[in-house]
Design a protein around this nucleic acid. Structure first.
Length: 589
DNA sequence: TTAGGGTTAG
């Protein structure tokens, strides 16, 4: 085929554009050199462009060699090279090339160069470089270029500066659906989850077709719903997807599976999963991870085995889901077996921090804390604070004081300590009655001015999310809620519920104060509100930012029995399904 | 000489 290359450039270019794989590109390169067609600017441009788009990142060297052999690169050649760097593992080089281009007055960069250079800054997290480009956009008079401004928005979004991203959005002269989607993705990335939902609604009700949500908008909105646990809103997005026939896209179906399972609705997740015409490794991983966080460990393992039967190879993330399923359901032997299989010749996957985290959690729950500690010590990469924190949690549960002290020193060493870590250590001390240590640590916390992160709980009713914090008085129906809570407390006491003072949470100064705060933890307010406003028998779904404390866990158990309700609480790491006075989880031994 | 470029699943 290559021999048939004639002097017809069109034919040649279409051949280049459709070429795939390194071998194929090398063959083409050889022919281009032999025939001197490489000198043709257009041919060269397309060849370089193909190289940078189709080769894996580390082969940037090939593109570099080809580029450096060109004696008089045009602007479009340089732009292609900047793009190649932006896709590579060395994006800083792309920014350098852009600056070199600026210094060379014969080839002033155009908006496209700035756009690719911004991509480089986004990839390397270089806000300073991005700011320089922003300044030049003003001086170069590129402010009317909507596409360039959209990339600029993405820079601020990636650098956690959503306010400036919004300012740029306001300046875009012609906003299309992509600019709107970048705004949505900015909110999502910067944890402005509620803004995503508000914006989605706004876009849905817009008459202008350029603003109507497309598949990407829906994808982002579904992720926001998953983060918030906003099941009703997620269902609305699902309905919108069906109405607009985006439904068959694999990425949307996969996100729906993930959204439903992360909102605690496995029935709906299965429904979507079973209806899919085509499933890839992402679909199976979403299902396995969903089963894992909902505490269905055995089912997750079954799904994994079924996936293998379909001939689909697991990836890193699949094992993260599978191992976390084992740890949440305390399937210690199975978890260790899968960890070994993952590393063996069968799958040849090198464990990452997430995998180690799952195994540390698994061993921690099985009271094998020394083994967990040695595993962390044996890791080839540096342990992060989350790994240590997992072990610290296990120390708290099993009352391992000395190990707990050692672990927190590692966290402090990483300069990553959070208030919650001190609270865990505090609770470790108090669980074994080391009161003098408790006092000592409390004064240290005061000295260091450590403030605990306020806990919040959210409950969604007909698409509106109601949020509560500890001792919240801001809700318009607060009086009724507190009255209801008092009534619930009374009912539960009759059934045998006792407030637990000694364990969990918050660096409060006196037992008295502690008991008070326990009575009004945010999840209790949310549950009371749920009972107040929903008809009997309705499932109550609460999402919480921290881990549920033992007392609230008990409270929910009693509520599910006394009020005959299914209560589903999603805390920081998993779901608790309360029914008939018991919980599906193994978290509180 | 022109076109090229921005968002996106586990």
């Amino acid at each position: 085929m290559l021999k048939s290359i004639s002097s017809s450039d069109d034919h040649l270019i279409s051949l280049i554009v459709s070429s795939t794989g390194k071998l194929h590109l090398r063959q083409i390169h050889a022919v281009l050199l032999r025939t001197s067609l490489i000198r043709n600017s257009d041919v060269f441009h397309h060849f370089l462009s193909r190289l940078s788009l189709s080769l894996i990142p580390r082969d940037i060297n090939y593109s570099c060699r080809v580029f450096s052999q060109r004696s008089n690169p045009t602007l479009s050649h340089s732009n292609t090279m900047i793009r190649a760097f932006s896709l590579s593992k060395n994006p800083i080089e792309g920014f350098r090339l852009f600056r070199a281009l600026r210094r060379n007055s014969s080839l002033p960069p155009n908006p496209l160069s700035s756009s690719f250079a911004l991509k480089c800054c986004i990839k390397s997290g270089d806000l300073l470089g991005g700011l320089q480009i922003h300044g030049k956009i003003y001086s170069d008079g590129f402010l009317s270029d909507s596409l360039l401004l959209t990339t600029l928005m993405d820079l601020y979004s990636a650098c956690e500066n959503s306010n400036d991203a919004c300012k740029v959005f306001d300046e875009i002269p012609q906003r299309d659906i992509v600019s709107w989607n970048v705004l949505v993705s900015c909110y999502l990335r910067n944890k402005r989850t509620r803004d995503v939902l508000v914006l989605f609604d706004k876009m849905k009700n817009e008459v202008d077709d350029c603003v109507k949500p497309d598949g990407v908008t829906c994808l982002l909105a579904l992720q926001a719903c998953a983060n918030l646990g906003a099941l009703d809103f997620g269902k609305q997005v699902h309905a919108f997807i069906d109405e607009n026939r985006f439904g068959n896209a694999l990425n949307l179906s996969n996100t729906l599976v993930s959204m439903y399972s992360r909102c605690g609705s496995m029935d709906k997740a299965y429904e979507v999963f079973n209806r899919m015409d085509e499933r890839n490794v992402v679909s199976w991983t979403a299902m396995i991870s969903g089963l894992a966080i909902n505490g269905f460990g055995k089912e997750a393992i079954e799904a994994f085995n079924e996936m293998l039967k379909f001939g689909i190879s697991p990836e890193e993330q699949t094992f993260t889901g599978l191992l976390s399923a084992c740890s949440h359901s305390r399937l210690v032997d199975e978890g260790m077996m899968f960890f070994d299989r993952m590393r063996s010749g069968e799958f040849k996957i090198k464990p990452n921090l997430h995998h180690y985290g799952c195994i540390v959690d698994l061993l921690g729950r099985a009271r094998q804390l020394d083994k967990a500690y040695s595993l962390i010590k044996s890791m080839e990469m540096k342990p992060d604070s989350t790994i240590w924190r997992t072990l610290l949690g296990a120390c708290r549960v099993h009352g391992y004081v000395e190990l707990g002290e050692r672990v927190i020193s590692h966290i402090i060493e990483l300069k990553a300590e959070e208030a919650g870590d001190y609270v865990l250590l505090l609770n470790t001390y108090s669980s074994v009655g080391k009161w003098e240590k408790v006092t000592e640590l409390r004064s240290l916390m005061k000295e260091k001015r450590i403030q605990t992160k306020p806990g919040w709980s959210a409950i969604e009713l007909q698409g509106t999310v109601h949020e509560f914090i500890v001792d919240d008085v801001s809700h318009p129906r607060m009086e009724e809620i507190y009255k209801k809570l008092a009534e619930i407390n009374q009912q539960l006491k009759i059934a045998g519920y006792v407030v637990e003072f000694t364990s969990e949470l918050h660096n409060l100064d006196s037992e008295e104060e502690k008991g008070h705060a326990l009575t009004y933890h945010s999840e209790k307010l949310a549950i009371a509100f749920g009972i107040l406003v929903t008809p009997p028998g309705t499932t109550i779904r609460v999402t919480k930012n921290l881990r549920t404390c033992v007392d609230c866990h008990n409270f929910a158990k009693f509520v599910s029995d006394v009020y005959d309700r299914v209560v589903i609480v999603r805390d920081r790491s998993r779901f608790h399904h309360f029914e008939n006075g018991s919980c599906s989880c193994n978290d509180f031994w």
